[in-house]
Nucleic acid binder design. Structure first.
Length: 473
RNA sequence: GCGCCCAUCGUCUAGCGGUCCAGGACGUCGCCCUUUCACGGCGAAAACACGGGUUCGAGUCCCGUUGGGCGCGCCA
């Protein structure tokens, strides 16, 4: 058995959205699983909509997700000469023919089909007409002379055997009137030339597989193994939209998700391995198989992604997490500012705070928020109530209050709350996330956090200026 | 409209004819741990879309209904 060759073939008309990322992931996994090759092909034949910015975004997204492709990324547009060459061959062999039908004629066909409740189908009017009848000055398109009888079978690894009646498949366009290849032709030629053995893609391509099979057969080429994976839907079951999560993967990076967590979440959307939920990348590679992919579409669920991310964060080594955070800083809200202030001393303090912080953060964004106290400007301005408390006796006053505050109900007292809030707001952190890192920073210990630690610090204004200074390993 | 695909807790799913009064995970709700917030532990509510078959026996096979999705371009 020869080695598997898979490919990811995005069109650069936008960012790498989450569905595309999952398709890439499955191709990558399959190649890794069976010791094969994972190729990248940019489908940029639509010159109007393709942009270099989109290409860059896609490469960057794949790179961030850790899905590294083998060899150079191939530009489909750059292979147009080859596509034309193949079409010439088909023309010569009679597998294709020139069609001079005008846009108006096609529109008429479409209109009529709709009126009669039929799907649009080219009627083959130039299929057997002599080229000498061609209207002068009209550039023809080249169409496939598809078999009209019988059926075309797509033996899909995920969907099973899917049978299409050939009468439902018309003579598709291979070459446009301007001489440029269509997607349908280019895909077939490129997959063949690249030696692609397994085509794994969204099941919105299932009917295309039938059409492409016809082209493969017309060319006498071996048809690749198909695997059409179900699409991801939004929380409401409708097609994934921007509002749902059809965001570029860079948006997930900005939301503070770890690549490994996103991979784990994405692969479990439609694929399963018994009851196992969490996988290291090696474990997924070892367990992955097309046969375990489900056939029904699944909905994207941020809550589960977030939970999963929390698991990965806690499972990360402190140094590893620290590095991930620093590397992601440029993309996180407020991150660039922090990155700017990250001198050696701040790095050490941040590193020291990670163990306490990571227990309660589900994303890198929350991790950064939790570390906010390290980066605020001190002394912290106090609001009136807070100032009032301090004015009444500061630390001593607070100490006197402590016994009364040993129960949760007490710390909702307005004055106390004001103090804590003032601190939390200033440090840009959530109330709960303030205590432990502060304690850790002050004492070098990371256990027994308490709101009272915060209060005692607040009671000593002179300490505020030194919080950062006293932190460290 | 035509073609194709799909259908187990709110969500992701296990289940490949009997061991399923349906298991796991997220979410939700209790309780425990905790001088905050998390983490963790224990527990609860929560599903086989509907109707016919086949079979001694169906979540598991077949048909239909309903519901959802995808496709139907000189886009990819």
């Amino acid at each position: 058995m020869s080695q598997a060759v898979t490919r990811f073939a995005p069109s650069p008309t936008g960012f790498l959205h989450i569905g595309g990322a999952r398709t890439a992931l499955f191709n990558w996994l399959y190649a890794r699983r069976f010791g094969g090759t994972f190729l990248l092909r940019i489908e940029d034949t639509d010159r109007e909509r393709s942009t270099q910015a989109a290409v860059d975004a896609i490469l960057d997204g794949l790179d961030w997700l850790g899905l590294h492709w083998d060899g150079e990324a191939i530009s489909q547009f750059g292979r147009a000469w080859r596509h034309r060459e193949v079409v010439d061959r088909m023309l010569a062999s009679g597998a294709a023919y020139r069609c001079y039908a005008s846009a108006e004629e096609l529109e008429e066909m479409r209109r009529k089909a709709r009126a009669e409740g039929r799907p649009m189908r080219y009627d083959g009017r130039w299929r057997n007409r002599d080229p000498s009848e061609a209207p002068p000055g009209v550039a023809p398109v080249i169409r496939l002379r598809a078999r009209q009888e019988g059926e075309t079978v797509v033996d899909d690894k995920v969907q099973g055997k899917v049978v299409f009646a050939n009468k439902d498949l018309d003579d598709l366009v291979l070459l446009r009137s301007d001489g440029n290849p269509t997607f349908m032709l280019a895909v077939v030629v490129d997959d063949h030339d690249m030696g692609v053995t397994h085509v794994i893609r969204g099941d919105d391509h299932l009917t295309n597989a039938a059409r492409q099979t016809q082209i493969f057969q017309a060319l006498g080429w071996e048809v690749p193994v198909w695997a059409h994976i179900p699409l991801i839907h939004g929380p409401d079951g409708a097609k994934l939209s921007k509002r749902h999560g059809a965001l570029g993967v860079e948006a997930y990076r900005a939301m503070g998700y770890l690549p490994a967590a996103l991979r784990n979440y994405l692969v479990r959307l439609g694929w399963s391995h018994g009851d196992k939920e969490f996988f290291t990348t090696d474990e997924i590679v070892a367990a992955f198989d097309l046969s375990a992919i489900g056939r029904s579409p699944s909905r994207f669920d941020f809550a589960k992604l977030e939970n999963m991310n929390g698991h990965f964060m806690r499972a990360s080594g402190d140094e590893e997490l620290f590095q991930a955070l620093v590397a992601t800083l440029p993309y996180l809200p407020g991150g660039p500012e922090v990155a700017q202030r990250l001198d050696e001393r701040k790095r050490a303090q941040l590193r020291a705070a990670i163990p306490g912080l990571k227990e309660r953060a589900k994303t890198l964004v929350e991790l950064l928020e939790g570390a906010g106290f390290l980066f605020v400007t001190r002394p912290l301005p106090m609001d009136e109530k807070a100032a009032d408390i301090l004015a009444k006796g500061g630390r001593a006053h607070l100490a006197a209050m402590l016994p009364r505050l040993s129960r949760i109900s007490d710390w909702s007292g307005p004055a106390l709350e004001a103090v804590v809030r003032a601190y939390a707001e200033e440090s840009g952190a959530k109330l709960g996330s303030v205590a432990q890192p502060l304690r850790a920073a002050l004492t070098g210990r990371s256990t027994s956090p308490g709101i009272f630690d915060v209060l005692s610090v607040l009671g000593r204004e002179e300490s505020l200026g030194r919080i950062g200074d006293q932190a460290g390993p």
